[in-house]
Simulated assay, not measured.
Amino acid sequence: MATTETGACPFATVRDSSEERIEASKAVVSDIVDEILAEYDRLRESCPVAYTSHYGGCWLLTRYEDIKAAALDSDTFISSVRAVLPSDPRGLRRPPLNFDAPAHTPYRTALDRTLKPARINRLAVALERHAEALLLPLLRKGQGDVCTEFAAQFAAWVETEWLNLTPDTAPRLAATASAWVDAWRRMDGERTTQFSTQLYDIARAVLTDRRKNPRDPEEDPASSLLLERTKDGEPLEEIHLVGCIRQSLVVGMVAPPLMIGGICNHLSKDQELQQQLREDPGLIPAAIEEFVRLFSPYRGFSRTVSKETVIRGHTIKPGVPITLTYSAANRDPAIFDEPNRFILNRPNIAMQMGFGRGRHRCVGQPLAKL
């Protein structure tokens, strides 16, 4: 258990080491998941606002209503101090995730412009080809690692098509992003910088090219960003433009392997559901919503408060991170009946928070659902 301050409730710390996950058997992983879910249940019931000394000290929310209220109140719960835990060991801040409005707005507007339904439909054609090509080797040999051999590679192609990168970028992006995530999880600042620099090189090259060869801003994120202006009418700063593209490269690489792995693991155990979706593909969108609720790839994002704030009797002070645990919210029995069970076409599935809420909801949500 984590050490705690007097009067605050403890919560269990989940180990994130890649080596530990690789070495763990399926039975052990299942036990760990059950332990985490049980801890969420305990906290929601007896200590919905918990404190731990881990990560330098932070608060944790586990009830749906508290998490939703905080996510929607971006004036009080700000992202510019701490937006994730553990944070980048170098302390860097990139838009739009680490910016608050109004500084956040032009970056978000630019990215949203390139993810309208018409563009998503066009991307679907190319992405289906990539999916089939990546799955074929696994199907031929009858086995494989769906996370590393398919999902991580496919995510790189999604980024490559969305950002209009050259085809040779996809395999390089997959390898570099994976190494960067592993270094970050280990809090290895040197290797985090090494692989992050490679991602920055990709981002700078894209921005340099778009300055020379601008594209349709509704089809190209970098070109869209170059059109945006600050609230004072000034062009966006170069360092933040590069940072935004660099962040876009990474966030789309982390979640898909986790999400697709969770989906495939579930379907391997639920043959009836698998067959149902094969026979009626029209059910897949509803199934995806329930999978996102159950297997939220980002357990939560963090905020700090802009002013001293009281939540359920606990005083939260500015500067101290408070984590909005979306994975706990999505399993809150006060909101979702039988929260740990897959239920196709839940009547209130639109309330799931796997993509967050408010100004900082997942910008890539349309791509993720596709």
Results as ranks from 00 to 15, higher is better:
residue 20 E to T: 09
residue 24 A to L: 04
residue 25 S to W: 05
residue 27 A to S: 15
residue 30 S to G: 15
residue 31 D to R: 09
residue 33 V to Y: 08
residue 39 E to F: 00
residue 39 E to G: 12
residue 40 Y to P: 04
residue 40 Y to M: 02
residue 41 D to N: 13
residue 43 L to V: 12
residue 45 E to H: 06
residue 47 C to D: 06
residue 49 V to R: 09
residue 52 T to N: 04
residue 53 S to G: 13
residue 55 Y to E: 12
residue 59 W to R: 02
residue 60 L to S: 10
residue 61 L to K: 02
residue 61 L to Q: 03
residue 62 T to G: 08
residue 67 I to Y: 04
residue 67 I to L: 02
residue 68 K to Q: 09
residue 69 A to F: 01
residue 69 A to Y: 03
residue 71 A to Q: 07
residue 72 L to N: 14
residue 73 D to M: 10
residue 74 S to N: 13
residue 77 F to E: 07
residue 79 S to P: 01
residue 80 S to Q: 07
residue 82 R to D: 05
residue 85 L to W: 02
residue 85 L to Y: 09
residue 89 P to F: 03
residue 91 G to F: 04
residue 93 R to L: 11
residue 93 R to G: 03
residue 97 L to A: 10
residue 99 F to H: 03
residue 99 F to I: 12
residue 102 P to N: 10
residue 106 P to H: 00
residue 106 P to W: 00
residue 110 A to Y: 00
residue 112 D to W: 02
residue 113 R to Q: 06
residue 113 R to T: 05
residue 114 T to S: 12
residue 116 K to G: 05
residue 118 A to K: 10
residue 118 A to W: 00
residue 122 R to W: 06
residue 123 L to W: 04
residue 124 A to C: 11
residue 125 V to Y: 01
residue 125 V to A: 09
residue 128 E to I: 03
residue 129 R to Q: 07
residue 130 H to S: 12
residue 131 A to T: 11
residue 132 E to I: 11
residue 133 A to I: 04
residue 134 L to I: 01
residue 135 L to R: 02
residue 136 L to H: 09
residue 138 L to M: 14
residue 139 L to T: 05
residue 140 R to A: 15
residue 140 R to D: 14
residue 140 R to L: 15
residue 141 K to Y: 05
